[in-house]
Design a protein around this nucleic acid. Sequence first.
DNA 1: CCGTATCCATTTGGATACTG
DNA 2: CAGTATCCAAATGGATACGG
Lengths: 135, 135
Amino acid sequence: MTTTRRYPGDPEDPGLPYNAFAKECPSRGTLEHVTGRWGALTLGALSGGSLRFNELRRRVGGVSEKMLSQTLHALERDGLVHREAQPTNPPRVDYELTPLGHEAARRVLSLIHFLEDSMDDVLLARESYDARGAR
Amino acid sequence: MTTTRRYPGDPEDPGLPYNAFAKECPSRGTLEHVTGRWGALTLGALSGGSLRFNELRRRVGGVSEKMLSQTLHALERDGLVHREAQPTNPPRVDYELTPLGHEAARRVLSLIHFLEDSMDDVLLARESYDARGAR
DNA sequence: CCGTATCCATTTGGATACTG
DNA sequence: CAGTATCCAAATGGATACGG
C-alpha cells in the first residue's frame, strides 16, 4: 500500500468538501468572521446569554459602533447570531447565539481562556526574544 | 450573600489577571496574532509537524511572503513557534510549534474543523438572510 | 436606544524587485 | 531557499452627524 500523508488542508484528503487552507474555499470567509479582530470577542461575550447592542459594546472593550454593527451583521448572515428586535419605543434589540453559534463560541472561548492562562509564558517568551534579537 | 454575575471578561471577576475583553490587556494582542487572518491557518498548518518557509507558504493558500514572514515573527515572539535555521547553503529554515503552540493549535484546529463541517448550514443561513434582506 | 452614513487618518496587505 | 525593501491599493477604524 502507498503511504497516505495527511495534513490540515491536504487537497488530496477525501471527504473534505470544505478546506479553510484553500484560498477559494467559502469556509475561509466564515473563519475570518469568527476569528476576526472583533468576531471572536463578540461570540465570546454572547456566550453568557443574550445582550443588547450597547451592553455588548461595553463588554467588548474598544469596539466602535461601526465595527460592532459590521461584525454582528456578518455573524448573523452566517447563522451564528440571532437578532431579536422589539418594535417598541425606544427600540430594544437583543442579540443571542444560535445553536451553531454556541458551538463556535465554546471553541473560541476555549482558545481565549487558554491564551489568558498562558500570558505569563508568552510575556516571558517575548522578553527572551527581544533580548536575543539585539544581537 | 450577593448574587455574583459572571460573564466572559467581567472586570470584577477575581483571579483573572488577564482579560482579552479588556482593551488594554496584553492577551488581546496575542489573541490577534493567533486568530488573525493568517495566524490561525499558520498554526493549523504547523500542527502536523515542522515545515520549511516555502512548504508552509504552499500549505496556507493565498498568503504572501511578507504576511507569512510577519505572522511567523509574531508567533515566534509570543513563544508559539520555534525557528530552526541551518547555516547551510542554500539556507534551510524549519518552523515548528512549541508545546504552547501545540496547545493553541489544537484549539484553533478544533474551531476550523467545526466551521468546515458546518459550512452547509452556514451557506443555507446566508441564502435565507439574503432572501429576507430584500424586503 | 439602535443604529446608518459620511469623511478621513491609519493600518494592512499584495505585487514586485532584490539580496545573502 | 529564505527572506527584506519598497511602492501602492484596499481595508480598517474612529469621529461625527443624523434618522427611525
